[in-house]
């Protein structure tokens, strides 16, 4: 694991992806100190709305990425939006990975009826398009950040469960698993000490890719008006408000969309890089 991680850190894609994600994370974390304007401020709307990128406002300050239809500074909103997008994406993907690993590991460990029921449920849930499932779930609830994390996790654990089951089954066949069992390890100890550490790499890769998916879907829900509600700036509701002003001010939708695409690219680069670093034939 550590050796492969060292390989992964030498991979150019992991570095590039990590740099993209790190930049977004830094922008989000430091947002209150580095953004030039208050992301919620609507100063003198008539004179500050629809300012094109690089235009100076009536106060003389340059709006690097322009302003939206309420005169709010897009660069500042983008930085604050990174907080929501990254936090929701990472939390949702990690929670999904935990749920999926637990279900997959239980299925592999107990075999028989438990495994059949768990895997049938996994396959059935996997057959439903994730967005459809998300829509059906948020249809019954009023959206908030913790809820969005929860529904994203509830709709994202299935691929991890299948991966984890396959990996744990593979490790279970190894001699050291037999040795641990013969030495009297309880199933829980066997799982935690021996199986999971050796089955975790594909789960990490899936989680990295899952972060990208969750970011896209979180923004998508916000875009449909079913995500984290305004006025909290999120990339999704920025794209949505840009849709309403697509003709007058195309930049409003363009920049947050680029941000989502870049963040997803970052996640995919990291995921692909780790996967290839783990796979000796691809080195």
């Amino acid at each position: 694991m550590t050796a492969s991680l060292r390989f992964a850190l030498r991979d150019r894609r992991v570095l590039a992806g990590g740099a993209i994600l790190g930049a977004f994370a830094l922008a989000g974390l430091l947002a209150p100190w580095i953004v030039p304007h208050d992301p919620l401020a609507q100063p003198d709307i008539l004179r500050t709305r629809f300012l094109a990128p690089l235009a100076a406002g009536p106060d003389g300050a340059v709006r690097w990425l322009g302003t939206d239809q309420l005169g709010r500074d897009l660069l500042s909103r983008l930085a604050y939006g990174a907080r929501i997008s990254l936090a929701v994406g990472v939390l949702a993907a990690v929670l999904a990975a935990v749920i999926g690993t637990a279900i997959g590991a239980f299925a592999a460990l107990f075999r028989g009826a438990v495994e059949r029921v768990l895997m049938a449920a996994t396959d059935a849930a996997l057959a439903l398009p994730r967005l459809v499932l998300l829509l059906a779930l948020v249809a019954l609830l009023s959206p908030s950040a913790p809820l969005v994390v929860l529904v994203l996790a509830l709709t994202g654990w299935m691929p991890v469960a299948r991966l984890a089951r396959a990996e744990v089954l593979g490790v279970l066949g190894r001699p050291y698993a037999d040795a641990a069992r013969a030495a009297g390890s309880s199933p829980v100890r066997l799982l935690v000490r021996h199986l999971l550490p050796n089955a975790l790499t594909p789960v990490i890769v899936a989680t990295a890719l899952g972060v990208g998916n969750a970011i896209t879907l979180e923004a998508g829900l916000a875009f449909l008006g079913l995500g984290i509600p305004a006025p909290t700036p999120s990339w999704g509701n920025m794209i949505a408000s840009g849709r309403d002003a697509l003709v007058q001010a195309p930049w409003i939708a363009t920049f947050p969309g680029l941000a989502v695409a870049l963040a997803v690219v970052g996640c995919n680069l990291v995921g692909d890089g780790i996967r290839d670093a783990m796979d000796p034939t691809a080195r």
Binding site: G212, T216, A219, G220, F223, I239, G242, R243, L246, V247, P250, A253, T254, G257, V260, A261, L262, A263, V264, V265, N268, L269
Partner: peptide, 22 residues
């Protein structure tokens, strides 16, 4: 392909509307 694959569908749709309709 890496970049296009990362694009959200709803955003690409808006960009296409912007270019080929407006």
């Amino acid at each position: 392909t890496l970049f296009v694959y990362g694009m959200p569908s709803y955003w690409l749709a808006l960009i296409l509307v912007l270019v080929f309709a407006y």
